[in-house]
Design a protein around this nucleic acid. Sequence first.
DNA 1: CGTTACCGAGACAACGTTGTCCAGACGTGA
DNA 2: TCACGTCTGGACAACGTTGTCTCGGTAACG
Lengths: 351, 351
Amino acid sequence: MNDVAAHARVSLKTVSRVVNGIATVAPELTERVQASMKQLGYRRNNLAASLRAGHASRTIGLITADLSNSFYATLSSAIVRAVRAQGFQVIMASSEEDPALERTLALELCQRRVMGLIIVPTDASHGYLREEIELGIPVVFLDRPGVGISADEVLADNRGGAEAAIAQLVSAGHRRIGFLFDSLDIYTMRERLAGARAALKLAGVTIDDALVATNIHAPEHAAAAISNMLALDNPPTAVLCGNNRSTVGAVEEIWRQNAGIEVSGFDDFEMSRLLPRTVTTVSSDTVALGTTAAAQLMARIDGDTSAPRRTLLPTHLVKRGGWATAAQDRRESTSTESDCTERGISSHKPT
Amino acid sequence: MNDVAAHARVSLKTVSRVVNGIATVAPELTERVQASMKQLGYRRNNLAASLRAGHASRTIGLITADLSNSFYATLSSAIVRAVRAQGFQVIMASSEEDPALERTLALELCQRRVMGLIIVPTDASHGYLREEIELGIPVVFLDRPGVGISADEVLADNRGGAEAAIAQLVSAGHRRIGFLFDSLDIYTMRERLAGARAALKLAGVTIDDALVATNIHAPEHAAAAISNMLALDNPPTAVLCGNNRSTVGAVEEIWRQNAGIEVSGFDDFEMSRLLPRTVTTVSSDTVALGTTAAAQLMARIDGDTSAPRRTLLPTHLVKRGGWATAAQDRRESTSTESDCTERGISSHKPT
DNA sequence: CGTTACCGAGACAACGTTGTCCAGACGTGA
DNA sequence: TCACGTCTGGACAACGTTGTCTCGGTAACG
């Protein structure tokens, strides 16, 4: 900037004024300065500017569990788009589900003076964030609640979705329902299982613990677990899968064994309509989750100091797949959705 | 920092030394400073530090075409992980395939003093980047080459992959092969089609223009296009799809019409093995693409000033899906891969 | 012609940090 | 005891920018 000023034979401040588009500069000088900037390849240093201006870095931090997972990719994409509209940029990091790494990343981002954080939290205490929040960096937890701290949360109604899925299976006559869930250390898994249990209790159906498999991390685990269940004297007639990996493994194995049991699962996914079996998925609007979290954070950055708020987004049942079971499901996916349950924000309040 | 110094009754510089872990501070003072830092909630301002230190922001910028696409999500994830190992953070942005937006984003990131850029470029001139590169911000183009500028490029061997796919179809006896490609404005589409044409020419097979459909953006377009081809007097016996969306649409429609034609396609995708039809996909190691680009950029940041370099990663054919056509394909996917062609880096040099 | 008012431009300080240099204190050896 | 060396702490400047204040010039009006 000094060089530009010297080259254009004006003062430093005049260059600053031109850069910031302040109108009170003589047109002739403006022109000279702009020519010099171009000639010298001048680029405004936004870091320095935000230093002077007092922390207005116009950057937020985003920590998800696994960037390559399409669920988080969609979330991230929605967030980036939403905050970009307000001139904000996003530093992204991945905690790999490791609480220690998550903490390190969060603190690093705070040091970098992000103006806010969106975190998909792991299942460890987030007390360390209290200080950062008090120091003025707002935090929004996304998809799962933070532990041991009060902050904004944007969640999907997993419990309600589970209840709806079970209600549908029960009304279709199923009484023996299997469960394939990932680790119950994950909040969403606990919620989904709790919802399912509640709905079954309501329907007066008792749960056979032999039909509840947990710690299913990969399709192979799901295949093995469902295989075991099918080998029981009294096998399930339907299965509820805790996430899309479980669903995929279950569908594969069920198809392989040509077993005629019904499948419901969480986390709708791209291409799910190409599954050979009909599957009912509990899906939530991932884009809305991201957009809502971004909006909540921006409100905090803009000075909203009201009490922390939990937003619960609805989930709904969608019928997917069924190519192998043929032409009985030739309807468009939109009309398929219409005969499914919708759950509103107020449907259920997880604790 | 001033406050900490006052509180600990030491000089500003002493605090700085403690923060930076310089050993020449008396242990007693170090302790006093650390206590004061904790008590006052001091956080080092990395922005200010990098300002003083001369642009060592330890941040890179990443611009992809569409964050929510699983291909770019995987790329991004690999890049974030790779640079994180060197203490770098990543600011991510999405160009939405819009050259003007891409340019705006790139310049914004430069103003923010990122130390390097990885860009999945759109098909417009990147001459504007020349100045930035000269100013010392290295750029690596990923997945597609930049236009009108010489910089590092990390690409997949699309042309070789297309040749391999066609060779396989031809050797299986196919002579009438349809093509479903997205816009030829996209570099990868041009490369893939060029490879296919070259391989067909080599095999002495002439191409019927009625079997070449372009500008296929969505599965529905692919379905319509393949439907038209199947209605011809002399329909194709096989089809090559330019990306996974085309593949999905084609497979759906072919299945619907119960037409027995063979499908090959680009871009392997999660769940592709659950497709009802057997599909041969040309896949590349997406993680390796990202990791390679990150490594190349880090080398430039570390001062590598050698001539711009094009890295071509191999593609290989993988058989996927086939649930609906049943038990003839019961093998594990690993063994399925073993009977497929592998293309090396040196297989083909696209221009 | 003089005075006032206004406007454009420059000097200066400050944002938070760190490198450089220097001063002072302490210890040791002659 | 004095001189020299070493080692720690502090003053100062600088990174690149912008807000504030002030000054000089010009135009308009009395």
